[in-house]
Amino acid sequence: MLPVSDPSVHNPIQIDPELCIRCNLCDWICPGDIIYKEENNKQTMPVVAYPDECWYCGLCESTCPTDAITVVFPERMLRNQTDVVTLLGKVV
């Protein structure tokens, strides 16, 4: 059984169902075990099962034979508001 993705988590790997040929190369190439595609079934789409574990490497996008995949960054990466000083440790 394939995992179900949680719609409340940002999905970085957007797959166009019109272009996707259900080939499972994205599942195959993903180094993080994020994308699950049911093998030998040309009806089902790949599932981005663990979107918050994506490295944003884009191997899926670069490998996809029909350019069906686009990597989309979340707002917290694009318009980041973190104060960098909070990353530099506490002196106690």
């Binding site: 180094p31 918050d52 574990e53 994506c54 490295w55 979340p74 917290r76 980041n80 973190t82 960098v84």
Partner: peptide
């Protein structure tokens, strides 16, 4: 900065 555990310079 992003606070995303898997957003790392090296392979997470």
């Amino acid at each position: 900065a992003s606070g995303l555990a898997f957003d790392s310079w090296h392979f997470p």
